[in-house]
């Protein structure tokens, strides 16, 4: 497994896609830090970019890589290798290459800015962590989609739909529910709903750090009470890990059953 991981990782780190991804973040973070005097604002802008871009790139790139390495996988399958290790290795390889691009792209400008002595360190840490978490989750989902669908167009379409749903439509649904049932106290219900979307999870983790003043309104206080407490943090961590593990376990099951 480690060998496959290493191979995938090296292969991808040299690929144009990863470098482009890295450069994208580098330019975004660099220019935002350069143009806005306030690093707190740069973190907020980056958060907006990250929450959209990270799932999109992870899911599309995951699907793309899976389809394009199909021949290589078939070759590997002919070898006496356990299937789990092949797919796990590839999954981790893709994820780690994206994570490397993300961390370096965001990290280098902030390092030059002097993030370690800045009060924004905590915010930046949360930003990076949620980016990494989103990469793990959405690459896993991408592999699952790709392995379930032989038809590439269907696979790409599904990936796009999943991204659209999690990134945009889900929030729209929450808003519609909130406005239709505005007479009811929906704080806890909405809170429950956001727990089931990894994009919302990371968004809330971030706004808890960045927009704390606004969140201290009436409902905000309810959210803050959950997410600000250690129980809330534990819940978020457990759910994030579940969001990584569940697609991965499905991937393993599909991989071991699939007839190539």
């Amino acid at each position: 497994m480690l060998k496959i991981l290493k191979f995938t990782l090296y292969d991808l780190l040299r690929s144009r896609w990863t470098i482009a991804y890295f450069l994208l973040y580098l330019i975004c973070a660099g220019s935002l830090l350069y143009f806005s005097a306030d690093p707190g604002k740069a973190v907020i802008s980056l958060m907006n970019i990250l929450l959209i871009l990270c799932p999109l790139v992870s899911i599309m790139f995951g699907v793309l890589y899976f389809y394009s390495s199909r021949d290589f996988v078939e070759l590997l399958l002919a070898q006496p290798l356990p299937r789990n290790s092949i797919f796990t290795g590839q999954y981790l390889g893709v994820t780690l290459s994206l994570v490397t691009g993300l961390s370096l792209g965001l990290g280098i400008p902030f390092l030059f800015y002097g993030i370690f002595v800045s009060p924004e360190l905590m915010n930046f840490g949360t930003l990076l962590l949620s980016g990494i978490m989103l990469t793990f989750i959405f690459t896993g989902i991408a592999f699952l989609i790709a392995i379930k669908n032989e038809n590439r167009i269907r696979g790409f379409g599904l990936a796009l739909i999943v991204w659209l749903f999690m990134g945009i439509i889900y929030d729209g649904l929450i808003l519609i529910i909130l406005l239709i049932f505005e007479d009811y106290p929906l704080e806890n219900f909405v809170l429950g709903m956001t727990l089931f979307n990894p994009v919302d999870l990371s968004r809330i983790l971030l706004i808890l750090q960045l927009d704390i003043s606004a969140l201290l309104g009436f409902s905000g206080a309810v959210f803050k009470k959950l997410f600000g407490s250690s129980l809330g943090m534990l819940l978020v961590t457990v759910l994030s890990i579940l969001w990584v593990l569940v697609p991965y376990l499905f991937l393993r099951r599909s991989a071991s059953r699939k007839d190539f």
Partner: peptide
């Protein structure tokens, strides 16, 4: 009020 959770 609860829609503050959709902030950003």
């Amino acid at each position: 009020d609860a829609s503050i959770i959709l902030l950003r």
